[in-house]
Each structure stands twice: as structure tokens, then as C-alpha cells.
């Protein structure tokens, strides 16, 4: 009985269409989440802009920002974006080992970025320029730290997806999760464009 229904091409097509629709719905739901995240970040940017001059006699932007450091962070994140793109393409080609390789490279670039950010933050805190020093520094740590937390969550997600790819292979469900992870990862690079353009570059000008 089940064998005949499964072999019926019309029923198989219905199943496939239903699965496709479920994936589309998840993709739209995730997109809606990303848009709400964009609203959160835009408000953190606005708060930073308001707080920028409130240094309370403490260090100002040009005293604490190190532009070459930011340039390297930017490079790491941009490289991780294109290597994730290669992972997506390898997944579309159903090449499991290449997908895993590119996910690994993306993870390392992302880890390098988070490490550089932690070095920057701990250096600033050691110099007495921590988030408790002034309104300017509170808003700086909130904005850049929220982005850093997102990237860290992305790293955990990449590790989970690498595990799923190696254990479950590249079926439709894993492909759709990889797709949403890609949206998330590329979205974070877009937020970083805002951070270096509106926080670091004007800060040292």
C-alpha cells in the first residue's frame, strides 16, 4: 500500500511541493527576524550618534580607536562572507567535503574577527576606557558588542551546521538551514559596514 502511494508520481510531486513550501515559509520567517534585528541595530546606531560627544571628561573616539586594527577586522569579516558564499555554492553542487572545507575556513575567519574584537575591548577596559566610563563608551560597547555577540552566535551555528552536513549529508532540510545561516552571516557583514563607516572612520577623522 505505502509502496504504491510512494511510487505514484503525482503524490510524490505533491509531497515535494509541500516540502518546498515549508522551506519557503521558514525562509520568509527568518527574513522577518533579520528585519527586526536591523531595526534594533539602527536604534543602537542612533543611540551611539546621540552619545558620541558625551565623553564625561574621559577618552574620546580618537583616543581609543585604532584604525589599522579595524581595517584587519573588516578584512576578516569580508573574507568570511565570500568563503561562506563558496560553501553555499559547494552545497548546491552537493559536494560534501568542499562544503565542510569552506564552512571551516569561514569559521576560522569569524573566530579571528571575534578574537580581534575581544583584544580591542579588553585593551580599552585595561586603559580605563570601559563601558562604565562615559555615555559615549557605554553606547560604543553596546553597539559593537551586540554585533560581536551576533557573530559569536553565528560561529556556534556554523559549527552545528558543519556537524549536520557531515552526519546527515546535504538533503533538502540541511540545505535550507544552510541557506538561512547564509542570510544571517551576510547580514552581519552589512551591519559591520555601518559600524566601520559610522563609528570607527568618523571617530578618528
Amino acid at each position: 500500500m505505502t509502496a504504491t502511494t510512494k511510487n505514484d508520481p503525482e503524490i510524490a510531486a505533491l509531497f515535494e511541493a509541500a516540502e518546498h513550501e515549508a522551506i519557503e515559509e521558514k525562509s520568509l520567517g527568518f527574513w522577518t527576524y533579520l528585519m527586526s534585528d536591523a531595526v534594533i541595530f539602527s536604534l543602537l546606531f542612533a543611540t551611539y550618534a546621540v552619545m558620541y560627544t558625551r565623553t564625561a571628561g574621559g577618552p574620546a573616539a580618537q583616543d581609543v580607536f585604532d584604525l589599522p586594527h579595524t581595517a584587519w577586522e573588516t578584512a576578516l569579516l569580508l573574507f568570511s562572507s565570500i568563503t561562506f558564499g563558496f560553501a553555499s555554492l559547494s552545497a548546491a553542487e552537493e559536494d560534501k567535503s568542499r562544503t565542510l572545507m569552506w564552512l571551516g575556513v569561514t569559521f576560522l575567519f569569524g573566530l579571528g574577527f571575534v578574537t580581534m574584537e575581544l583584544v580591542e575591548f579588553s585593551g580599552m577596559i585595561a586603559e580605563g576606557a570601559g563601558p562604565d566610563r562615559s555615555g559615549f563608551l557605554s553606547s560604543f560597547f553596546t553597539l559593537v558588542g551586540t554585533h560581536g555577540l551576533h557573530v559569536s552566535s553565528g560561529l556556534i551555528w556554523i559549527a552545528i551546521m558543519a556537524l549536520q552536513v557531515s552526519r546527515k549529508g546535504l538533503g533538502a532540510a540541511v540545505q535550507s538551514r544552510l541557506h538561512r545561516l547564509g542570510l544571517f552571516w551576510h547580514f552581519l557583514d552589512i551591519i559591520w559596514i555601518g559600524i566601520f563607516s559610522f563609528v570607527y572612520l568618523p571617530g578618528v577623522m
Partner: peptide, 13 residues
Amino acid sequence: AAIMILIMALGTL
């Protein structure tokens, strides 16, 4: 989202 960002972020500024 773009409209909300414009109203809230630019409004704040």
C-alpha cells in the same frame, strides 16, 4: 523595516 528605521532612527536624531 526601512520605514520603521527611518522614523525611529532619524526621529531619534
